[in-house]
Design a protein around this nucleic acid. Structure first.
Length: 257
DNA sequence: ATGGCCGAGCGCCTCGGA
């Protein structure tokens, strides 16, 4: 019996709800972390998700950001935002599902290297790292999923020369993500396994980037040592990106024993 | 690869995304 964790930046839950429901039926994940729901809590599509067999906890706002965790049983001990880090955008929600602590993250985009939003992105990462260290002490079964907006290595970039030093791949951003992985002691589930080359989770809407596979791997599943031991597979599901009116991101899936 | 796309808002252009 496997337990399937997934993360998907849906880029508007309202627009993507048909895709999400279709994908839930096909992929049958046990836990799903959503980002960029762009939906106020009052408008969250609880009825449709209940009908599909999922409970949900969520934290949203109008137009931008917004995160949610879906599971067959109602997620418990819900935490909104990063403790001791004042932040307006709704980027973080955490909850307990079964024996796992699930952290759903939507990292800041950063806009351009050196900008004010870039500095904010790096500060946000520092706060996340400090928080997750505490979180792992409290619960060794820790899974961190989300749109981390960093392509950690050149092999996660379709054209590393073209992207060198740019937002999402700059060294300080990579160091910030490495800190989460190394200082907290997590594992990038995708790299626990042999993978095909040029596997990405995001492709620009412009210039037929998906058809050309001009993408980045910026959506990640990070597992604590206890959960990494149980992980038997990790992959990116490109199917929803091939459909009409797709999200620009594809779901990432990890299977655990 | 970068004009070119997409979603949201009180909206027919602008902002933000990545």
């Amino acid at each position: 019996m496997t337990f399937r964790l997934a993360t998907w930046n849906v880029n508007s839950l309202k627009v993507r709800l048909p895709h999400l429901l279709d994908w839930l039926g096909r992929a049958k994940p046990d836990v799903v972390c959503l980002q960029e729901t762009k939906t106020e809590d009052a408008n969250f599509p609880l009825v449709e998700l209940h009908a599909a067999g999922y409970q949900a906890v969520y934290c949203g706002q109008k137009a931008y950001n917004g995160v949610a965790i879906l599971a067959h049983s109602r997620p418990q001990d819900v935490q909104h935002g990063i403790p001791n880090f004042v932040d307006d955008p709704k980027r973080v929600i955490a909850a307990t599902v079964g024996d796992m602590r699930i952290v759903c993250l939507y990292a800041p985009n950063g806009q351009s290297v050196g900008s004010e939003k870039y500095q904010y992105k790096l500060r946000w990462y520092e706060a996340v790292t400090a928080w997750l260290k505490d979180e792992l002490v409290k619960d060794p079964n820790l899974a961190v999923l989300g749109d981390l907006n960093v392509a950690p290595e050149d092999r996660d970039v379709h054209d590393p020369k073209r992207w060198a030093g740019q937002i999402h791949v700059s060294e300080p951003e990579r160091a910030a993500m490495r800190n989460v992985v190394d200082e907290v002691g997590l594992a990038d589930a995708f790299r626990l396994f042999e993978q095909p080359e040029k596997e990405f989770s995001w492709w620009d809407y412009r210039l037929a980037a998906f058809q050309r596979n001009w993408g980045l791997r910026i959506d990640h599943i990070l597992l604590s040592p206890e959960l990494a031991k149980r992980c038997i597979a990790c992959s990116i599901d490109k199917t929803p990106r091939t459909l009409g009116r797709p999200s620009d991101h594809a779901p990432v899936i990890a299977d655990l024993r």
